[in-house]
């Protein structure tokens, strides 16, 4: 790894950690929502460094854009300060340390980053990369996999988004008719 990419990685990770700590320590929810947006933007930067531009694109649009707006809208409905609840810092720290150690222990069995022999690069990925150009005829392999090879999954994802959206519409009553109708029993 050359010094330039090391610097970029180090700066991104330091900023990610600093933003996460700041979010946890803030009492002001408005500032917290804005910091969440910044966190998403930094994550998008990390994904670009990892060559996952499609994921970075989604993270920037959804995480930094829509999620921030929805959080701000929720704050507008509820309140800008959160009530302080008594916490036991030692127990929380112990829990975080144990779970974090277990996660790090789990990474020891994972293949090295960028390892060409990793199972993820040996299974169907090879076929997608080598033959999707002839089979699908589309330069972007991500789109080929997402829309064609994994068409069922993507249909399921769209159905999930639709169902979740309809659920929120039902819960919050998105219909103007329902709000202006006093005879409505619900």
């Amino acid at each position: 790894m050359d010094i330039g990419s090391f610097l970029i990685n180090a700066i991104l990770l330091v900023f990610l950690a600093a933003t996460a700590i700041a979010v946890a320590r803030l009492q002001n929810l408005f500032a917290g929502a804005m910091l969440f947006g910044i966190y998403s933007l930094l994550s998008a930067g990390v994904f670009v460094v990892l060559d996952a531009v499609d994921v970075a694109f989604t993270e920037a649009a959804v995480g930094a854009g829509i999620a921030t707006i929805l959080m701000l809208s929720t704050i507008a409905l509820t309140g800008i300060k959160h009530e302080s609840i008594p916490i036991r810092p030692l127990r929380s720290l112990l829990l975080v340390a144990v779970v974090g150690a277990a996660l790090i222990y789990g990474t020891f069995d994972m293949p090295r980053f960028g390892d060409a022999e990793a199972p993820a690069h040996q299974h169907v990925a090879l076929r997608y990369l080598q033959q999707s150009g002839d089979e699908i005829g589309i330069p972007n392999v991500v789109t080929s996999v997402l829309a064609s090879y994994r068409g069922y999954d993507t249909l399921g994802e769209v159905a999930v988004i639709f169902t979740a959206g309809i659920g929120v519409l039902c819960l919050l009553g998105g219909s103007r008719r329902r709000r202006t109708d006093p005879a409505d029993k619900s």
Partner: peptide, 17 residues
């Protein structure tokens, strides 16, 4: 679908009383 659900969510949050 994604665009309309996003707009619908925004309507929900801004119209909710």
């Amino acid at each position: 679908t994604v665009a309309m659900i996003m707009i619908g969510l925004f309507y929900c949050f801004t119209g909710y009383r």
